[in-house]
């Protein structure tokens, strides 16, 4: 087994030599399969196979065991369609994504523009590190700090609002402000990653292009609008897709900020019950695993659809300018 694989490996590593023939094409294909095999296997065995089980079981009434499950067709999806809480969770997820995608992207872009290397200034390495650092921290550990900060009566957030003579808020205890509070935490936790992505995008713009723009009298906004922004198109698209996928799947901070292990997360009054939280609760708290699987399938399709729409838009706007 192993020796034949070694021979196989030797054969594909020779694939790069000689003129291109059918044999060479075949060898290159074999090389390709050999190279992607380790990662593809892991994806298939540990992610897609379990996901296929979820998709399968969402058409069944799962009885906890592998055999004897009852086929129920689209019944689980019908139940979801008639469940107000499911629609509420979709709304909350949409609200969360629609607010966070633009704010995260714009804030990250603004930070990147501020921190980049400028003609008369080195890049802001220390600040960049400080902004990125929260992304490194475990959510369980840092969310407790934010629970203290958001305390309506004695927390720092209201102390600051009070100092600015602004009305104080109930933050996580308010139907209106609970989800925005989670958004603030998420923004704090994740913006560093996207800032770095934008910084990388900025760094890849050739210096002479920037200089040419400024020689032409292009300063400030004009240079940004005409030179920098178009060249940031691809990285912007990448950031938007990444923020979208990550925000749709947000779970840990909602769980820890709004309830934690001891009480029902997602409150108050379902104000922070997003789709991934509801999937969790439906599966492990309410013990309706098939229903949770159906929700997972819906969420996956929605994520995929959103990414495809973004890709189509990006193809039109970004690449064919």
């Amino acid at each position: 087994m192993i020796s034949s694989r070694a021979a196989f490996l030797r054969s594909f590593t020779r694939a790069m030599h000689g003129p291109r023939s059918i044999g060479a094409t075949l060898r290159e294909a074999l090389l390709g399969y050999g190279l992607v095999m380790p990662s593809a296997l892991i994806f298939l065995v540990f992610y897609y196979a379990p996901a296929a089980f979820l998709a399968y079981i969402s058409f069944f009434h799962w009885n906890l065991f592998v055999n004897g499950n009852q086929f129920v067709g689209l019944r689980n999806f019908e139940i979801l369609a008639n469940q107000p809480l499911f629609w509420r969770s979709l709304f909350n997820t949409a609200y969360y994504v629609v607010v966070l995608v633009p704010t995260t992207t714009l804030l990250a872009l603004a930070f990147a523009l501020l921190l980049r290397e400028m003609p008369n200034l080195r890049s802001g390495g220390l600040s960049r590190a400080l902004i990125f650092l929260p992304h490194v921290t475990p959510v369980v550990a840092t969310s407790i700090i934010w629970v203290w900060i958001f305390n309506p009566n004695f927390g720092l957030a209201n102390a600051i609002l009070g100092f600015l003579h602004l009305p104080q808020l109930n933050w996580l205890q308010s139907v209106t402000w609970a989800l925005p509070s989670v958004m603030i935490y998420t923004l704090w936790h994740s913006v560093g990653l996207y800032t770095v992505l934008f910084l990388a995008g900025l760094a890849s713009i050739p210096k002479n292009v920037l200089e040419a723009a400024s020689v032409d009298g292009g300063h400030g906004w004009f240079a940004f609008r005409r030179v920098v922004w178009p060249m940031l198109g691809p990285v912007t698209f990448f950031v938007i897709v990444l923020v979208s996928v990550n925000t749709i799947q947000t779970f840990s901070q909602i769980y820890t900020l709004t309830g934690g292990p001891s009480s029902l997360a997602g409150g108050p009054a379902f104000a922070t019950t997003t789709d991934s939280l509801l999937i969790y609760q439906t599966a492990f708290l309410y013990q309706h695993f098939s229903l949770a699987s159906a929700m997972s399938l819906v969420l996956f399709v929605l994520t995929l659809a959103l990414t495809l729409i973004q890709k189509l838009l990006a193809d039109r706007i970004v690449f064919y300018r």
Partner: peptide, 15 residues
């Protein structure tokens, strides 16, 4: 090579 082969073999065996 040996390492790569071993890894591929282990992964294949898992599947």
């Amino acid at each position: 090579y040996a390492r790569a082969a071993a890894f591929v073999a282990i992964a294949a065996a898992s599947v």
